[in-house]
Design a binder for these strands. Sequence first.
DNA 1: GTCCGTGCAAAGGATTTGCATAATC
DNA 2: GATTATGCAAATCCTTTGCACGGAC
Lengths: 137, 137
Amino acid sequence: MDKKELRKAGLKVTVPRIKILQFLEHSKNRHHSAEEIYRHLLDAGEDVGLATVYRVLTQFETAGIVKRHNFASEHSVFELDRGEHHDHLVCVECGKVEEFLDPIIEKHQHLVAESKGFTMTDHALNIYGLCGRCQVK
Amino acid sequence: MDKKELRKAGLKVTVPRIKILQFLEHSKNRHHSAEEIYRHLLDAGEDVGLATVYRVLTQFETAGIVKRHNFASEHSVFELDRGEHHDHLVCVECGKVEEFLDPIIEKHQHLVAESKGFTMTDHALNIYGLCGRCQVK
DNA sequence: GTCCGTGCAAAGGATTTGCATAATC
DNA sequence: GATTATGCAAATCCTTTGCACGGAC
């Protein structure tokens, strides 16, 4: 129920917000750029502006509905925030994104931060490489 | 000997290239944005353009003299590439950057990539937090 | 009806590029 | 002297903002 989720976040229920939320929930790939989401909505016959997509995504990020990532610099990609933390494996060839969680890495990150006197607030681990399919080519 | 290093990289020895290399070698902080480098050169009385700083840094990156990082999105920062890999701890308050290397994390990153069928080409682990000094404030 | 959200176009910041001039080899 | 590098200004890419109109409550 997308409407509920929006209301819970204190956001009015509007067409762009619902459509963007639905796309993020139902699309096969979980990571999308604002441009991709915008294109998808246009293709689906929605009359929406790219600026609105950015605005909605930013609101979603603030509300904790969405996470923003900056992989290989360039543009940001967004994914639904399901609460469970994970890191990313990104194929440098086709852009495919895989998620993973390694408890030992997680633990050691905390140890490292601690040993340097830092209070860790967040971390981003991105592994770049060639996915199985792109290695063959 | 900066001139030698430039020639070795197949780059002509020019004033901007030498000055940028010297700054990266001798500055206390090892991580700098293009803007910072540009400002420093201007303050030192050099007549240089920001575009040249970007061009030189990109050439240095290609030549393996410099590494480019994209921490909290926004702008890139550059550091001299000394060959030895390391990851980064970034203070979200003051921007201070600490380097670290954790063999167990390194090893597990390879294991993760392998288990997903990826050939790892690179990785970036950034831990964000508050450094000791900023926690006190 | 009030207020917030939207589309459009214009602005914004970081980085790149085109071009004539100036420097390196 | 030929070629490559530079500075400047304009262009580009992604993203944000200003504004008048339209929709949500």
